[in-house]
């Protein structure tokens, strides 16, 4: 998932995205109490803003071995492997903002990509879903936006949130383009959908272009 300016989507369209849009997102949609779910062991939250990075001493080592992100991946894997068997294959990993992860990795795009690759291996090994958010306009000045491109190659579904070509409107805040490449899943492959959306207080409303006046 990436968006280039405009508003910020945090929900997915189950309809266009299909089975990959996991249970986790649906929970959020219905206004579920996440704190209660955390106590229930259905929601695990890694707060990267207060993530304790290994100190200065092993910074050099960290550069080569990946340090923080390797540890983060280890944590994710541990959480998933501790889940009961029937819940293991219905896990969704959500990464809120890969661009900030790049900052946390001290600008090492490769390290972030390695991390994403490892998260991607969980999707094929355990049937997890992976949702990652990035901002396209951060990379607009660079000639070759490698991170965005690599993420697109990795992803089976790409959701772009963009402003309307005509600018911000009262009823429509922007548009979503869903490119479903269906990379290795079965079923319908290669589908494109376009929606308009309106950001509300607690959720986002999606509709087909022209269906609202």
């Amino acid at each position: 998932m990436e968006h280039g300016g405009g508003a910020s989507p945090s929900n997915l369209l189950d309809d266009a995205v299909g089975p990959l849009a996991g249970r986790f997102v649906a929970v959020e949609d219905s206004g579920c109490n996440l704190a209660a779910q955390r106590d229930n062991k259905r929601f695990f939250f890694f707060d990267m803003l207060t993530w304790e990075y290994p100190g200065e001493k092993i910074r050099d080592k960290e550069k080569t071995s990946g340090g923080g992100l390797v540890a983060l991946y280890g944590e994710i894997q541990k959480v998933i492997s501790d889940l009961p068997q029937e819940r293991k294959n219905s896990v969704t990993i959500i990464i809120d903002d890969v661009s900030l992860m790049e900052v946390a990795a001290k600008g090492s795009t490769n390290l972030v990509l390695d991390f994403l690759h490892y998260c991607h291996t969980l999707t094929s090994e355990l049937g997890c879903s992976l949702v990652a958010l990035n901002h396209e306009d951060i990379y607009s000045s660079s000639e070759r936006p490698t991170l965005i491109l690599q993420m697109e190659y990795l992803a089976g579904i790409l959701i772009k949130a963009e402003p309307l070509a005509t600018g911000l409107a009262k009823d429509v805040h922007g548009q979503l383009t869903v490119l479903n490449r269906g990379n290795d899943g079965q079923g319908s492959r290669y589908k494109i959908c376009n929606f308009h959306f309106r950001v509300k207080e607690n959720n986002v409303e999606y509709f087909y272009p022209g269906s609202r006046t």
Binding site: G66, V70, Y73, G74, Q77, S81, D114, H117, Y118, T121, S124, E125
Partner: peptide, 15 residues
């Protein structure tokens, strides 16, 4: 070279 390209999964067996 897909499942564990950099040896991050050290100690955890993958099929």
């Amino acid at each position: 070279c897909y499942s564990d390209p950099l040896g991050w999964k050290d100690g955890i067996s993958h099929g």
